[in-house]
Simulated scan of single mutants.
Amino acid sequence: MKFSFTDDQRMLAGAVREVLEKSCPPETVRAAAGGERPGPAWRALADVGLLGAHVPEEHGGLGLTPLDTVLAFEETGWFAVPGPLVETAVAAPLLVPDARLAEIAAGTLVVSVASPLLPDADIADLHVVGDRVAPSGETDLTRHTSADAARPLFSAPRDELPAGPAFDRAALATAAQLLGLGRRLRAEAVSYAGQRRQFGAVIGSFQAVKHQLADVAIALEFAAPLVHRAAYALAHDAPSAPRDVSAAKDAASRAAHGAARTALQVHGAIGYTDELDLQLWLNRVWALRPAWGDDGLHRARLRDALLGDGPAAERLP
């Protein structure tokens, strides 16, 4: 298969990057760790159309496909946008009543979807657990420890994953975010490697460090086509879509995790302190890796598909 992104798809990603450069500095991500509702970045993404990208046009959205938005979601990973973005913009349009879709597109409705835990449920207006959609005040929540303070996690009495298109589309968007996060971490590591000095030389001149950074770059470049292939499969309702999504999520998760480990090694212990912003992207990678299916789930789906076990390839726990 040979394809390239259209000018419109690249323009949407460019518009998202432009508005997030202004509205989502690291200080915004830090503020989210204090429990603030989605602020300027959320409003900016609504204005540029990303929150309503998957909402049908008759409900005030753009009616776009996963292929149209995958590059844009990579950009949201680069900036570690706080709030339940994938849950609200990607999963919710397939799960909430049509009467609420216009609010999603306008940026006035925040939705948390169990995957299987509910991210940012404390600031969400609606909670979706399995096939149940309820106002936030009607859900009995239990808070859990999260790797990312800007992405708190909660459980409800039932913690079910939504099946079908909502799961696959959200898993793909999460893979795209992980790809963006991995690229940001690699960029931060390369920059710092040109500044940090040991034994009288910058560590970026050391062969071992060069090899580590090259390995990260290769893993990210190998993961990107899988993410884009999955977006194409979902946009065209290909029978292979569940397999392709699982391959993308697994590859992006592993590549981003490798980028996080290398970035932390390059920075040293200071990389995980509040003195540097690096920990914002580290924490987000570790929080998103198990979201919308952990590595084990997606490898099982991929294995079933490759071994020709039929319906098992689309099975969810």
Rank of each mutant, 00 (worst) to 15 (best):
T65G: 04
D68I: 06
D68V: 07
D68F: 07
T69W: 02
V70L: 05
A72K: 12
A72F: 08
E74Y: 08
E74D: 07
E74W: 04
E74N: 10
E75N: 09
T76I: 04
T76P: 11
T76K: 03
F79V: 10
F79D: 14
F79W: 11
A80I: 07
A80M: 14
V81H: 10
V81P: 06
P82E: 13
L85Q: 02
L85V: 02
V86M: 00
E87F: 00
E87I: 00
T88W: 02
T88Q: 05
A91N: 03
P93E: 07
P93A: 06
P93M: 05
L95K: 05
L95E: 07
V96L: 10
P97E: 02
P97F: 01
P97R: 02
D98C: 03
R100G: 08
L101G: 15
L101R: 13
A105Q: 02
A106K: 10
A106P: 01
T108D: 14
T108I: 04
T108N: 06
T108V: 05
L109T: 15
L109E: 07
L109Y: 09
V110D: 03
V110C: 04
V110R: 02
V111C: 08
S112D: 07
V113K: 00
S115W: 00
L117H: 01
L118D: 01
P119G: 09
D120H: 15
D120N: 15
A121H: 09
A121Q: 05
A121E: 03
A121W: 03
I123K: 08
A124Q: 04
D125F: 05
D125E: 07
H127T: 00
V129H: 00
D131W: 12
R132A: 13
P135L: 03
P135Y: 01
G137L: 00
T139G: 01
L141D: 01
L141R: 00
T142L: 15
T142K: 15
H144Y: 14
H144A: 10
H144N: 11
S146R: 09
S146C: 06
A147M: 11
D148P: 04
A150D: 12
R151S: 06
R151M: 14
L153M: 11
L153T: 08
L153C: 03
F154Y: 15
F154G: 00
S155F: 12
S155Q: 13
A156R: 01
P157V: 10
P157Y: 11
